[in-house]
Design a protein around this nucleic acid. Structure first.
Lengths: 242, 242
DNA sequence: CGCTGGCTTGATAAAGTTCAAACGGGGTGG
DNA sequence: CCACCCCGTTTGAACTTTATCAAGCCAGCG
C-alpha cells in the first residue's frame, strides 16, 4: 500500500539499505514531486519508444518490463515489486527500449527525470545509490541471460522462483518460504523463453517432486535446498543488504 | 593500438559521442591514472568474485564477460571492443558477478574505482556520461535476453552480427559491411546459448543463403537488408550517436 | 611433413513446440 | 442460489529444433 504521508519514503528505505543518507539527502528524496497512478492488471504503463521524461517507482503490485516481437510474441525482461524503479534504466537515455506493463493491479509514482538528475547532481551519495540500483538491475539481467542460454526449463523456473522469493522477502512481502504468485503460466513462459504448455508441464513436475506447491496464487517453496541446488542459485548478484 | 601520449583519450572520445565536455572535464578524464596491461587470447582478465577495485578500458582487441556453470559450461554475457568499459558495471558494487576474459590478444587500461568515483562526484557531466554507458550495456543485455528467449539459432546469430557490425563501425573498426571476426564457433555458441555443432550448421546455412561470407577471420555481410530482417534488428538500443 | 586446434558432417536422442481439445473454478447475471 | 461463462490450466499426440556422440577433415605452423 502506498503510505499516506510520504509515498517516496519507499525510495529512501530501498536506497538506504546500502547507503546511509544524511538528513538533507533524506528530505530531498522524500520531497521529490511525484504523480501517483493506479493501473489495472495487464495494462501498459510505459510504451516502448515514447520519449522518457519520468521514472516510475512501484508502490504496490507487480509490474514487468518486456519486448514485443512481430512473430514470436513477447519476452519479459524483468519483474518489479514495490520499492523497485524499473525505468531508472532510462534516466540518461532519450527513450525506453522496452515497454512496462502491470502484472497485477498496481500503484506507481512517477518522478520527473529533470528532478532526479538535479538531485543526482546536488547529492553525490544519491547519484551513487541510484546508479547502484541500475547496476543491480543489470546484474539481474545477466543472470537471466545465463538462465535462458544455458539452463533447461526446470532450472530456469527454479532460478526465477529463488530470485523472486529473496527479493520479496527483502521488502517484507514474503517469508517462511511462501510468496504471493500473481504470475500466470503464460507470464512465466514469456519470462523464461518457453511456451505456456511446457511451463505447465515443468510446474507439474516440480510439484510432484515436492520442490514447490502452488495454489490460489500462493507459492510455497517446500524444499529450498533442493530448489536452489536445481537452479545452482547464488544470491550474491541480488546485492541484498542483509 | 593504444596511442602513445594519452591512452585514456579513448574514454573522452567514447563518452564525448553523447556529451560535450568542458576543457576541465576532458583534462580530468585524460589525466586519470591508468595501468596498461596486455593479455594473451583466452586469458582471464578479471575473476568473478574478486573484490572490484578498478575498472578496465579496452584499448585494443576483443574481450568478453561470462558466467561459468558447473554442468553447462559457459555463458558469454557480452563482447567488448576498443573504447568499451566492460566492468563499469561494478563501479558501485563490491565485487563483479561475472568474469572477464580476452577473446583475442588484448590491451586494457585499469583505472582505480576511487579515482573514477572522485571524478563522478566532482563533475556531474562525467558521472552522467559514465552512468549512461552502463545503461547502454544494460539495454544490450536486454536485447540478448530477448534473443535467447524468443529467437531461434538463425535469428540470434543474425542479430549478434548486426550488433557487432554497428558497434565496430562506430569506433572505426568496420565498414562496407565487412568486420573482423576473431570469435571462434564455440565462442559464438557460448554467447548464443547453442552448441558449437549447431552453430556450425547455422553459419553454414547463412552462408549458402548468401547472407554472409566468412573466411580467414573476416566476416562480410553480403545482404544487410536480409540479415537485419531475419533478426528483426532495430539499432536504436545501441544508442550510437551518429 | 606431420600435428593440432578448430571446422565439418552424420546418425541418433532429447527437450521443447504446436495444435487441439477438455477441464475447473471463481465470479456474474438471472 | 444456481447455472453459466470465461479465463487460465491441464492433457495428449505429432512434430521441430537443438543436443549429443563420434568420426573425419583441413589449414596453418613448427
Amino acid at each position: 500500500m502506498p503510505s499516506s504521508g510520504y509515498p517516496l519514503e519507499l525510495i529512501v528505505r530501498k536506497l538506504g539499505g546500502a547507503t546511509r543518507f544524511s538528513q538533507a539527502e533524506q528530505h530531498a528524496l522524500r520531497d521529490l514531486p511525484a504523480t501517483i497512478w493506479t493501473v489495472e492488471a495487464q495494462r501498459d504503463i510505459v510504451h516502448e519508444g515514447d520519449p522518457a521524461t519520468q521514472c516510475c517507482l512501484v508502490l504496490d503490485g507487480w509490474i514487468c518490463c518486456y519486448h514485443l516481437l512481430t512473430e514470436a510474441g513477447r519476452q519479459i525482461l524483468s519483474f518489479h515489486v514495490p520499492g523497485d524503479l524499473p525505468d531508472l534504466q532510462c534516466l540518461h537515455l532519450p527513450r525506453p527500449d522496452f515497454g512496462i506493463a502491470a502484472v497485477t493491479r498496481a500503484t506507481v509514482a512517477f518522478v520527473p527525470h529533470a528532478k532526479l538528475r538535479e538531485l543526482a547532481n546536488g547529492f553525490p551519495a544519491i547519484a551513487a545509490a541510484l546508479w547502484r540500483e541500475t547496476l543491480i538491475s543489470a546484474a539481474i539481467h545477466r543472470t537471466w541471460i545465463t538462465s535462458l542460454g544455458r539452463r533447461d526449463a526446470r532450472q530456469r523456473l527454479a532460478h526465477l522462483i529463488c530470485e523472486l522469493y529473496l527479493r520479496l522477502e527483502a521488502v517484507g512481502l514474503a517469508d517462511e518460504h511462501i510468496l504471493p504468485m500473481p504470475l500466470r503460466q503464460p507470464d512465466l513462459a514469456d519470462a523464461l523463453g518457453l511456451t505456456s504448455v511446457h511451463m505447465n508441464r515443468t510446474l507439474k513436475a516440480m510439484r510432484t517432486d515436492g520442490l514447490i506447491s502452488l495454489r490460489s496464487r500462493r507459492l510455497e517453496i517446500r524444499d529450498w535446498a533442493g530448489l536452489s541446488a536445481v537452479a545452482e542459485f547464488d544470491p550474491q548478484y541480488l546485492h541484498l543488504s542483509l
